[in-house]
Amino acid sequence: MAMSGDIIANDILFEWLLRRGDTPLILGHRVSEWCGHSPVLEEDIALANVALDLIGQSRLWLTYAGEVEGKGRGENELAFLRDAWDFRNFLLAEQTNGDFGKTLMRQFLIDAYQVPFLAALESSGNERISEIAAKAGKEAVYHLDRSADLVIRLGDGTPESHKRMQTALDMLWAYTGEMFAGDAVDEAMFDASLAPKPENLRPQWQKTVDMVLDQATLKIPQSDFAHQGGLSGRHSEHLGHLLADMQFLQRAYPGATW
């Protein structure tokens, strides 16, 4: 059932699925770190719900990844028993929460990518991919509505909130280029009509980002320098610390279940 048939090699599909699953997993964990610490109760609840959606999406991708790999690993083994160099999330997702503004900016930059990416995946030649994308895409649109709205309100807010949002944007901008870099895995998926080329999503992403940041009175940094490495397992130092927290239970008590 997990066979991708003749269309694509299983190891390529597996690698690509890890990328899909790892970004929402790591971002979801990051967002969940706010639970009980948000500036106001409503936002605490909203952040926890966004985290829940992201982790739910990750489960669908990682479950499928495990089936494709065919070595008996399921979503849990993939999430809790891999080390940093085996993770394939965007570096942007693992960046620390910072203040509420940085968390929101990180969310917005990723949501603006996920919406067109998942929409394009709905017409994937692989039915399982297209089903997961349709399900996750509905949630991503809702997330983008929220993060865009808050980026505008805080950017075009008080001098203090504006300053914090601009600082967050300046800090995170260099991590956005990686989302459009693409490599041989993306190329193979594109050639097999299974997924879009990341670079082709850039115009849609850019349009959303330009409009929202303009409304938010924020200035887009001029530099197009892009940190890269997430897709090949070369992560920033933050991922290891995140995993130490996220994976502690399974490392200390292997196989523990509810």
Binding site: D156, V212, Q215
Partner: peptide, 9 residues
């Protein structure tokens, strides 16, 4: 979304 962004306040 593009049409909605302008009303997001």
């Amino acid at each position: 979304l593009a049409d909605r962004i302008l009303q997001m306040t």
